[in-house]
C-alpha cells in the first residue's frame, strides 16, 4: 500500500523535475501541490510534452489572476492538467506583463481551451495568438472593458439610506432612477 502511493507521489515529482530540467522552468510547492512556472513562449511545448509523454490527457482549467497595480508581471495565466491514467493533477503558471498581453493559444494541444481563452479575452483582455474564434463570450458583444481586471469597478448601485439620500441623489444622472 505504501509502495504504490509513494510510486505515485514520486511519479509526479519526477515529471515535474523532468520539466524543470528540460524547459528551465521553476517549481513551487504549496499544501502538497506542485506548480510549474513556465515562460509564455514555452508553455505550448511544455503542455505538448506533458500530454504526449506523461499522459496528462485533460486540460481541466485555464484561468488568470490580475495583480494590478504590479505591472511586471501583471497577469498570471494558470493551467490545471489532469492525468486520468496516473491520477495526478499538475498546475502550471505563466507570467505576463503589460496591459495588453499576448500569448500563444492552447487550442492546438487541448481543444477545449477554446472557450476558456475566449473567457480570458472577455474578462481580462489577454489576447491569444492563433485562436480560431476570439470574441466575447460572457459579456454582450459590444461591451467595453474587461470586467475581471482589478482596475475595472464593481459597478454596484449605492444603497440610499436616509442619512446619505440627498448626496447620492445629487450624483445621479437621471433623478428618477
Amino acid at each position: 500500500m505504501d509502495d504504490s502511493t509513494s510510486t505515485i507521489v514520486r511519479s509526479l515529482a519526477e515529471t515535474v523535475q523532468q520539466m524543470v530540467e528540460q524547459f528551465h522552468a521553476r517549481v513551487e510547492e504549496f499544501r502538497g501541490d506542485p506548480t510549474l512556472e513556465v515562460r509564455a513562449d514555452q508553455i505550448v511545448p511544455v503542455c505538448q510534452a506533458l500530454r504526449d509523454a506523461e499522459g496528462f490527457e485533460m486540460l481541466v482549467d485555464e484561468t488568470a489572476v490580475d495583480y494590478w497595480p504590479t505591472e511586471t508581471p501583471r497577469f498570471y495565466v494558470i493551467y490545471q492538467l489532469r492525468s486520468i491514467s496516473r491520477n495526478q493533477l499538475l498546475s502550471l503558471r505563466v507570467p505576463l506583463d503589460g496591459n495588453e498581453p499576448v500569448m500563444p493559444t492552447m487550442t492546438g494541444v487541448y481543444p477545449n481551451a477554446n472557450w476558456y481563452e475566449r473567457e480570458l479575452w472577455d474578462m481580462f483582455g489577454i489576447h491569444f495568438a492563433g485562436h480560431p474564434d476570439l470574441r466575447r463570450i460572457l459579456m454582450p458583444h459590444d461591451w467595453v472593458g474587461h470586467p475581471l481586471r482589478k482596475d475595472y469597478p464593481l459597478g454596484y448601485e449605492e444603497p440610499q439610506f436616509t442619512f446619505n439620500y440627498e448626496q447620492i441623489q445629487a450624483r445621479k444622472l437621471n433623478p428618477k432612477d
Binding site: M139, P153, L154, E157
Partner: peptide, 12 residues
C-alpha cells in the same frame, strides 16, 4: 431589487 448581486452584470 438585484438581490445578493450588486454589480456590473445584474440589472438592479
Amino acid at each position: 431589487c438585484g438581490g445578493v448581486f450588486n454589480n456590473y452584470a445584474i440589472v438592479q
